[in-house]
Amino acid sequence: MRNNTKKVSVLTVAIVVTMFWVLVACGSDQKEQTAGGVSVTSELTGTIEVDGSSTVYPISEAVAEEFNKLYPKVRVNVGVSGTGGGFKRFTVGETDISGASRLIRNPKETSKAEANGVTYDELRLGTDGLSVLVNLDNDFVDCLTVEELNAIWMPESTINNWSQVRTGFPDQKMRLYGPDSDSGTFDYFTEEVNDEVQASRSDYTASADDNVLVQGIAGDKGSLGYFGYAYYQENKDKLKLLAVDSGSGCVQPNLQTIPSGEYSPLSRPLFIYVNEKSYQRPEVKTFVDFYMDKGPDLTNEVGYVASQDAVYADNRDRLKK
């Protein structure tokens, strides 16, 4: 009896293991066939490491997806470590391309790159407009000045009612929603509005997941929050977008005002950084060139505003050098 049970158990394990390998084998076969079937234009191979900003990630992912249709044998790994986390890997030469929602300016980053002999090209992709949002039922505010935003969001701010923001606003409790302190969006907003990176009041509902912020603002009548324009575009029917006045009148973020810089100071640039040594590898060169060709369309498609053709022409010039 015992022998029998033992046999059965061993058999079970054997079957499971076999199934696993069959599955893996079938899987890879099938994939190569579909990839090899339709649109192969090249025998280019290799691996490209992309990492960096979560804001730039959707663009890089879209480019990688389109690229793979043409060059199925090139492996493009796209990670999300944040702008700072991405630069950490980029400056030691671990990645070939790094997405960024700010310039590489931190002296720690540039000196590290220098020490490791990493030289790079900075390529501008487009612009994201940080959007300030309130509840759909909010009928008293359409525009806030940068000073008002600063008064609301600065560290130790005690504003908790809309009537404290501007005389004439009704007595309505105010609750705040925003990205958490790991986010590049948070870095950019605090620097532009509060004049210091990471300086912000902390008694607000913070989330790394922008969908949580959308739901919080949509369900709370006195709410105020901010996040990237792409998330607003997907939730236009749930939220009210505010204009921002930086001294020269109220400007709403939209597809014209964001790239022109008119929507200021909350328009932020999006970049990829390309390791120059990596760029000499044929697969990386092909990928980056492809990125520059498809960048404008795909940047718009994922919800940002692509830079003008002249900027992309300038990018190509930088790469040629």
């Binding site: 890879s28 994939k31 691996t47 796209v78 990670g79």
Partner: peptide, 17 residues
């Protein structure tokens, strides 16, 4: 470990992403 979300291949041996 991986810091990675977008991959379009199956690892064929233990030293792949």
């Amino acid at each position: 470990i991986t810091a990675l979300v977008y991959i379009t291949y199956i690892p064929k041996h233990p030293f792949e992403r």
